[in-house]
């Protein structure tokens, strides 16, 4: 018997091979391959309707794939592997009429914790998220943000090795967003694997080491964050000019300009040198601030999705910066 790459499989927290799922005639997931290394924070990106939720539902065993294989923590996905995953769905939901603690004890019990274990874990997590005082209150009496935090506690209560978090920051105020971010990083530092499905490119850039961009049910970009940035699109510079100054956007190195408040986020063409660009710009206008960043995930996302399917304009959350209307095909205009 040939030695299967079992060792490789075992090292991956998650491995999807040729996964297909259709609803009626619509192919929601179309031959998706995905490998999530253990201990990574992995970003799952994609426009609305790309197939992210369907993919997550399949690895949680809520939906069955039509074809392909799914391995979770080195084993074929099954009822047994479900209990080793913590899942925070985008559509949150616990029992609103039940007390916070009863909700947590129930979901802890379903995932195999004894009452004493669940109680201890609930106490620890509620304290960590500064929610101890809510334990005996009904869930529906809590604010939306606090309900989100309880939902997060229900997700991590049983110390899962793999966490699947679908839009974990939505509905949280900035203070709690920071708290959530720190918590995610702590969990990753403890060796947990985290799959983060989100629209927020900033969060992916801040947290994730790897990512997959899904569009129309297929992975169109995959890999380590730095590699993706290097491969797709040149450097991005942030530029802020003195008041009254105007940049000539026809500069040959510029691929795209986005205005973010008073600053400009400028996508440079492949091979363009940011220092040379700065000296040319500074010769014409007075520069107040100049910063070189890798290509922004946002611009990569928009460009790749549009290129993949020009007819379909990706839907972005209202808070995302506006994109110029010209088709972005890369390589300068």
């Amino acid at each position: 018997m040939p030695v299967q790459p079992a060792a490789v499989v075992r090292n991956d927290a998650l491995r999807l091979e040729g996964v297909v799922k259709s609803f009626d005639r619509h192919r929601a997931v179309d031959g998706l391959d995905l490998t999530v290394p253990r201990g990574s924070i992995y970003g799952l990106l994609g426009p609305n309707g790309a197939g992210k939720t369907t993919t997550i539902r399949m690895l949680m065993g809520i939906l069955r794939p039509d074809a392909g294989r799914i391995h979770v923590l080195g084993e074929p996905a099954s009822e047994a592997t479900k209990d080793r995953i913590g899942y925070l769905p985008e559509e949150r939901g616990l029992y609103p009429g039940m007390k916070v603690l009863d909700n947590l004890l129930f979901f802890g019990a379903l995932r195999g914790l004894s009452t004493a274990e669940a109680r201890a874990a609930a106490g620890k997590w509620l304290a960590r998220l500064r929610m101890e005082s809510t334990a005996l209150r009904k869930l529906q009496e809590l604010s939306k943000g606090n309900q989100q935090k309880i939902q997060f506690v229900a997700t991590v209560l049983h110390e899962p090795e793999l966490l699947v978090l679908d839009e974990p920051f939505s509905g949280l105020d900035p203070v709690n967003q920071d708290l959530m971010r720190t918590t995610i990083l702590d969990l990753a530092a403890q060796g947990k694997t985290i799959v983060l499905s989100t629209h927020l490119m900033d969060e992916v850039e801040r947290l994730c080491s790897h990512l997959t961009l899904i569009h129309a049910g297929r992975a169109i970009v995959q890999g380590a964050l730095d590699d993706v940035r290097r491969e797709h699109g040149g450097e991005t510079v942030h530029l802020e000019l003195e008041p009254g100054q105007e940049l000539d956007e026809r500069h040959p190195a510029i691929v795209e300009v986005r205005r973010v408040g008073r600053s400009l986020e400028i996508q440079l063409g492949a091979g363009a040198d940011p220092s040379a660009f700065l000296s040319e710009v500074a010769a014409q206008v007075r520069v107040r601030r100049f910063e070189v960043r890798g290509a922004s995930l946002h611009s990569i996302f928009v460009r790749l999705v549009s290129a993949d399917d020009p007819a379909e304009v990706p839907t972005l959350p209202a808070s995302a910066p506006r994109v110029p209307e010209a088709p972005l095909t890369g390589g300068g205009r």
Partner: peptide, 12 residues
């Protein structure tokens, strides 16, 4: 109230 999705992630 969407609790179903959480439920189905641990029971069939």
């Amino acid at each position: 109230n969407r609790v179903i999705e959480v439920l189905l992630s641990s029971v069939t």
